[in-house]
Design a protein around this nucleic acid. Structure first.
Lengths: 160, 160
DNA sequence: TTTTCTGCAAACTGTTTGCAAAGGC
DNA sequence: GCCTTTGCAAACAGTTTGCAGAAAA
């Protein structure tokens, strides 16, 4: 990261977000800035409550309502994607310009693993064009057990 | 329905459900029976609140808690599928034995249209087997505009 | 100085839980 | 009669909203 060129830094999610927010007429409030920092650094989709805890822990606490409000704005501007992962819990993840992906959710430990698959995208794309229905976005979530939980379960089965 | 043979009736969702519930050690309570009737007759996925209203309207009211409990049991037994459709609202739909499908959700009018696609299933199946992750189920939701809303929008665009 | 943004607390909504009464076996 | 199922009401969790003060432009 340290070795980034100016151009690379310019094209970061963080900067694109700031640009688009300004263009949409938003001011740069404290909560918004902190949120952008966090989202830019995040590696995987988070819930609002996780975000809240994380910010409180790093003593840059932000009111819950503000988190919801900012995430909502960011979603409208297509800077953040909201992912529903069962049990009525929503997770938020920044949208990387060229990194469309879906998620595997482990029903044992809850971990989310991103994945991409061209055949899947092709199938959806073909569907989208021939459906009468006009598809603007899609969500694919696979549920099961992650490699770790599988290994753990296997080990246990083997030892009994 | 009246002209059904014994075999056809035997293979109905309703009867399979009852069988499986009994096998799992459940008794036949009033709420459960009413719920089974409703689910068996339903044409599309419903929310719990919709179910509650519907039952109250048909003067066979069932407590909300019971609806949740029964749907939960039915989901465990794979007799009912829970579908998350954004905004943290869950919909429930009975599982037809040979009719696995996904949903298109119209972001304009909210209608849900079921669809099936072999290429999509193939892609997911291939993913499932080669992932390290053990996939037990999957959810695909396509968002967009249904044919009706599209037509309406086009008509409006044409007239202006 | 005007308008937006923020945090707080209260309100809401969908869901879950505890408990006493009703009902199946 | 024992144990499950049910309904009610209260508890909960995530989310939204109203409002007064703080902060940006």
């Amino acid at each position: 990261m340290e070795g980034m060129t100016a151009t690379e830094r310019r094209s970061s999610w963080r900067d694109r977000a700031e640009e688009r927010l300004t263009a949409a007429g938003y001011r740069r409030g404290g909560a918004r800035t902190v949120l952008l920092d966090l989202l830019d650094a995040q590696r995987c989709a988070r819930t609002v409550l996780e975000i809240e805890d994380e910010l409180r822990a790093s003593d840059r606490a932000v009111g819950r309502a503000s988190i919801y409000r900012v995430l909502d704005e960011l979603e409208q501007l297509h800077l953040v994607q909201r992912i529903e992962v069962g049990q009525g819990i929503a997770r938020y993840e920044r949208i990387a310009p060229d990194h469309h992906h879906h998620h595997l959710v482990c029903q044992n430990c809850g971990v989310m693993v991103p994945f991409t698959d061209d055949a899947l995208e092709d199938a959806i794309h073909r569907l989208s064009t021939g459906a009468g229905f006009e598809v603007t976005s899609h969500d694919v979530v696979l549920y099961g057990r992650c490699a770790d939980c599988r290994a753990a379960a296997d080990a246990e089965a083997g030892s009994t």
